[in-house]
């Protein structure tokens, strides 16, 4: 019988790793190992002798995997970034989702497809969460800046809070800019003058 492919996931966040493992288990019968520790990464990967390695594109330790592309002995199986563009846009989808797959030389695309499909779906979710987090953080920062600018206007011009915000908004509309940008400009200018 065809042995299930072996997959190594490089991920230091335990919760994320478990989510990836779960979706891969649903996709097929694979032997899965998670490596959380990046020290000695390529050595640890070699010990597992995997068919596929999955790693977050944003992970700086990705460069350590490039060594695996150079087979150092006759029994070594070179692993390379999966770059076959013809395989139904698999790699494009993976890069889009933020996952890079390193695949052992000679592995057929149809055996890889269920793995990548599952990984891509999971990483898309991670990316959505990441974008939402960044968005929330940005909104929070903007709120803070707007509050500071409002406070400055209230103090300098004797306005109440509503009037101060109305002034910011009007200026922003007149200049075709965002309220947060006008507020930031005011805060920066005030910083320079103080």
């Amino acid at each position: 019988m065809d042995r299930g492919l072996s997959i190594v996931i490089v991920e230091s966040d335990r919760d994320r790793a478990m989510l990836i493992v779960d979706s891969l288990r649903e996709a097929g019968d694979f032997e899965i190992h998670v490596i959380a520790e990046v020290t000695g990464l390529s050595r640890h990967i070699k010990q597992h002798n995997p068919d596929v390695v999955l790693i977050d594109i944003e992970n700086p330790s990705r460069d350590m995997l490039e060594e695996l592309a150079l087979a150092s002995g006759p029994l070594d199986r070179p692993v390379a970034m999966f770059v076959d563009k013809s395989a139904e846009g698999l790699t494009d989808a993976a890069i889009e989702a933020g996952v890079s797959a390193y695949v052992v030389d000679g592995l057929k695309p149809d055996r890889l497809k269920p793995i990548l499909d599952a990984a891509v779906a999971r990483f898309r979710m991670f990316q959505r969460i990441r974008t939402e987090l960044a968005e929330t953080k940005r909104a929070l920062e903007e709120r803070k800046v707007i509050d500071r600018a409002k406070g400055m206007l209230m103090k300098a011009k004797g306005l109440n809070e509503e009037e101060a915000y109305a002034l910011l908004r009007k200026t922003a509309m007149d200049q075709g800019r965002k309220v947060a940008d006008v507020a930031q400009a005011l805060v920066t200018a005030a910083g320079l003058l103080s």
Partner: peptide, 15 residues
């Protein structure tokens, strides 16, 4: 970019 390999891939895939 976070890594050299990601720069290379961004270049190769036209990002």
């Amino acid at each position: 970019a976070p890594s050299w390999s990601s720069i290379r891939d961004m270049l190769v895939f036209g990002r």
